[in-house]
Amino acid sequence: MQPSRSTYIKWGSAAISLIWLAVYVWFYRANPFGGPAYDYADNWGIDLLTFVPALAAAGMATLVALQYQPGEIPRRIWLTFAIGWWCWVGGEIAGMVYDYFYWDTAYPELTLIDLCWSAGYILFGLALFYQFRAIYAEEEKNSTYLYLTLCAAALILTLGLTYLARRSGLGEDVSAFALYLAILYPVFDLVEGGAALWLFLLFRRGKWGRPWWGLIAFAIADSISIYFWIGGDEALSQKTVDILYLFSDTTYVGAYLIVALAFLSHYYMLQWPPASPKPNRP
């Protein structure tokens, strides 16, 4: 049987994604614009190589969400998830803009980037919440309060962790608010990465679970950065640290690509009429 057009597109996109990651790694290591020193042009290249997958992830998520009718639970899940990705696209753009204006100086403590990341995390959390509710609640119930309670618990937990971090001497050179934000991200990563891992175990090979794999990849990528941030790099050789940074940053771009590919596959799964199935006699 001849492979269908959608099969070509899906495998073609997967191949392009791998090539994209290879280009990213090459760019990361070679610094092609700035010679031996990492400079603004190289940074811009890296940003662009990150921005395009982010755009692809947000675009594909939106396309899939719009395939569902208003009022359907999957539309609510994927649209919330898609808006989260758009927030992160906003974060990537804001990052590029801030790099332009603050290339030679430090960023302000609260930036638009932080707002975009935080909004993205909250929306991912909400999408995860909708997904879990669809799985575990047999009847649809209004449980917005439950989600708000979970958010409040995460914020309070972060507050506690900020206090502990301060006491143990972490982030002495930054304000309490900046430290709070810096700890909030790992908390979100931990909670949402854990929830995504739970969904991964629930869905296993089911196609529905694949878009969530992106959150697991982000959690892995961020956990390396967090480990270094709390001083883990001091115990490692510079070469190991460099390799882990490369792995972390590539995984971060890979996460966007995973989400985009998963939604592409999801999009073709929704096409009507479906490819004619083969009959099977009992």
Binding site: Q67, Y68, Q69, E72, I73, P74, R75, A134, I135, E140, W208, M269, L270, W272, P273, P274, S276, P277, K278, P279, N280, R281, P282
Partner: peptide
Amino acid sequence: RIAGQRLTQILTHHLLPTIRE
């Protein structure tokens, strides 16, 4: 409820060849 109307239609569509056969 979890997968939406379209995927449910696709599921029932996949039953038809067996029924017809």
